[in-house]
Design a binder for these strands. Structure first.
Lengths: 329, 329
DNA sequence: CTTCATCATGGATACGTTTCCATAGCTCCG
DNA sequence: CGGAGCTATGGAAACGTATCCATGATGAAG
C-alpha cells in the first residue's frame, strides 16, 4: 500500500480511502491511485486489516470429522456456502473423534482469531472451551450433537423421533423381534436407541436386550460381524434397525452374504440406496440444512446477537424403498 | 500479551520469550509469566504474528469443487491432513466450475496472505493468477487438471492410460461396438476419450463417432438420457465406457430401467459399486494420494524449493467386478 | 582490582491497515 | 470581507507480535 501511495504521489490514507471507497477523494486522484494499484498488482492485506481494533477477521473455523463421510461433507459444503455469501472465509480443521486433537485444533483456530466456530463435538467434556477461548469469548455453534460442559447454540436432527419412526415402521410391517445396532460412543445413536425403546414400548413389545447390540467403534466391519452373529443365532431377529449409514452398509453386506431375508431400516440416507438389489428403506434428514442453520446461527452471534441459546431440531423422515417393508418370516 | 506482561510485572519482550521458549529467562520469571498467562487466558495472536516480516501465515488455501462429490472430499481430507501435520491451517473455498467465482476466491485467499494454494482449476484461462497473485508470487499447485495460462506444479491421474485400459478390457471381452460418454468441458474426460480412441485403433476397430457422446453438463441425468437413447437406437452398442462416476450412475440407472444387458466400465470407483445387482467394473486411482502429493509439493515450494515445475501422474488401475466382463449379445 | 564475557531483561521498531484529528483551500452567506 | 462550513488531503496512532540493539548485573579470568 505504501508503494501504491508513493507511485501515485499521495498519502497512505488516500489509498486506503480509494480502496475502501470511503471518504472524499477527487476523481482524478482516485484514477491515479487505481492506476498505481493495477501497475503494482496490489491487493489489500486482510490480515493487517483484521488486526485493527473492532474489526473481526471475517474468518470462521469449522471443526468436524473425516470429510470422506458424506455427512460431514454436506455439512461443510453448506456451511462454506452460507459463509462465503456473507463474506467469510472458512478455516477447515478435522479432529477424528479425538478429544485431545479437537482441543488443540480449537486452540489453533482461536489463535488465528476466527470470528466464530462451528463444531461437531465429540463425546468428551467441552469445558475447555471456556478457558481456551480467551477473554473475548468467540461464539460457538455445535452441530449434530450437543457438547457437555459448554453452553452454546446447537443444531440437531430429531434422532429420537427418527428412531421411533424407523422402529414403528418395522412394527407396522409385522415385526416383533427387531434388533438395533448402536455405536455407544455417539450421542446420536443413543437418542435413536431411545426412540427404538419408546416405539416398542408403545406397541406393547418387550425389549429383548440381546437384540440391542453395541458396537464399540461403529465401523462397517463390526456391524457386519454383529449382523452375522444375530442372524445365525438360535432365535434370530426378523428385522434390524441400524442407526448409522456405515452400520447399514455392514448389515447389508452380512445379510446378503448369508442370503437372509431380514428387514432393514437404516438411519441416514446414502447414495445408491435405491439401486441395491432390494432398495433400502431409511430414515433421513436434510444434512445440508443442518450446516446452513448452524452457519446462520453463528452469523447472528457474530453480529452481536444476544438471544438465549437456541436448540434447533430438524425433522427426520422415512423413505420406504423395500428393505423395510418385507414381512417377517 | 501486554496484559500478561503487566500482570507478571515484566516487559512484553520477556513474555514473548517465554511463549516461544526462546532466549534466556530466569525460571522464576518464566513461572510468573506462565501464571499470568493462564490467569488471563491468553493465547498468542497468530494473525499479528504472521504480520511480521519474513514470517508466513502458516495457512494455505484449498480451492475446489462441490465437497459432496467424494472425489473432492477425499482430496480435501488428504490435503488437510498433510497440512495439519506440517503445522498449517487450511482455508477452504469452493468454486463450482465457475471461472469468475474462482477468480474472486483466489483473490480472497491471496488477500488473506495464504502461504500457498492448492487449486483444482476449471477449464478457463488462468493467466489471471499472475496478476492477482501480487508481487511475491504465492506458490500454487494444480490438482487433477493442468491450468492453461499458468505454470506450476501439477498432480494428475493417468487419464489416458485409464481410458485405454477400460476400453481394452471391453475389447478383450469381445466387444466391438463400445460407446463412450464424455463431459466435454472437463479436461479429464477428454484425456480418457483419447485413451479410448487409442485402444480401439490399437485393436483395429474403427471409432463410430455416433458412439462418442458428449454431455454438455456431465450430470447423471444427461448420462441416463444418453444411455437410453443409445440402447434404444437401431444399432446399439454392446458396451459403454462412462468417464465419470456421476455418468456411470446414470448409465446404470438407464440400463436397469431398460433391463438391458450392456457391459459397463466406469472411470472412478464409488461406494457400494460392489453391492449393486451386478457389481460394477471400474478404473480407479488413489484420490487421497492425489491430495497428499499436492500438499507435499506445495510445502516444498513454500519452503523455498526451486526445482523445475513437476508434473506427477498417478497410475490408474482396473477393478473387474462384473459389469465389465459380460460378453456382447 | 580490572576487564570481559554472560545472563536476564527491557526499549524501540516494523509489519499493513484504518480511524481520529488536523490543515489548507475553496465557496457561500451575511 | 470575514468567518462558517465543506472538500480534499495528510499526519499520527493503534492493533499484537518478534527482532535488533542496549543496558545493568553478575561472575570469571587475568
Amino acid at each position: 500500500m505504501r508503494d501504491v501511495a508513493e507511485r501515485a504521489g499521495v498519502a497512505l490514507v488516500t489509498v486506503s480511502r480509494v480502496v475502501n471507497g470511503i471518504g472524499a477523494v477527487r476523481e482524478e486522484t482516485a484514477d491515479r491511485v487505481h492506476a498505481a494499484i493495477s501497475e503494482i498488482g496490489y491487493q489489500r492485506n486482510e490480515i493487517a486489516r483484521s488486526l485493527r481494533p473492532g474489526q473481526n477477521s471475517l474468518t470462521i473455523g469449522l471443526l468436524l470429522g473425516d470429510l470422506t463421510n458424506p455427512f460431514y461433507a454436506s455439512l461443510a459444503k453448506a456451511a462454506v456456502e452460507v459463509m462465503a455469501d456473507a463474506g467469510y472465509a472458512v478455516l477447515l480443521s478435522t479432529a477424528d473423534e479425538d478429544p485431545e486433537v479437537e482441543r488443540r485444533a480449537v486452540g489453533e483456530l482461536i489463535g488465528r482469531r476466527v470470528a466464530g466456530l462451528i463444531i461437531v463435538p465429540d463425546q468428551g467434556d467441552h469445558a475447555f472451551l471456556r478457558e481456551v477461548n480467551g477473554h473475548d469469548q468467540v461464539p460457538v455453534v455445535f452441530v449434530d450433537r450437543p457438547a457437555t460442559g459448554a453452553e452454546a447454540d446447537v443444531v440437531l436432527v430429531d434422532n429420537e423421533g427418527g428412531g421411533r419412526t424407523a422402529t414403528q415402521h418395522l412394527v407396522d410391517h409385522g415385526h416383533r423381534r427387531i434388533a438395533i445396532l448402536v455405536a455407544p460412543s455417539y450421542y446420536t445413536t443413543g437418542r435413536r436407541l431411545r426412540g427404538y425403546r419408546k416405539a416398542l414400548r408403545h406397541s406393547g413389545i418387550d425389549v429383548d436386550e440381546a437384540l440391542v447390540v453395541a458396537l464399540p467403534r461403529g465401523t462397517t466391519e463390526e456391524a457386519s460381524a454383529a449382523t452375522h452373529a444375530l442372524l445365525t443365532s438360535p432365535n434370530p431377529p426378523t428385522a434390524i434397525f441400524s442407526t448409522t449409514s456405515f452400520l447399514t452398509e455392514g448389515v447389508l453386506r452380512a445379510s446378503r452374504q448369508l442370503g437372509a431375508q431380514v428387514a432393514v431400516v437404516g438411519f441416514d440416507d446414502f447414495k445408491l440406496a435405491d439401486m441395491l438389489p432390494t432398495p433400502v428403506t431409511v430414515v433421513t434428514s436434510d444434512t445440508e440444512e443442518l450446516g446452513r442453520r448452524a452457519a446462520h446461527l453463528l452469523l447472528d452471534r457474530i453480529d452481536g446477537g444476544t438471544a438465549p441459546f437456541q436448540r434447533i431440531v430438524l425433522p427426520s423422515q422415512l423413505i420406504a424403498r423395500g428393505t423395510g417393508e418385507t414381512a417377517p418370516r
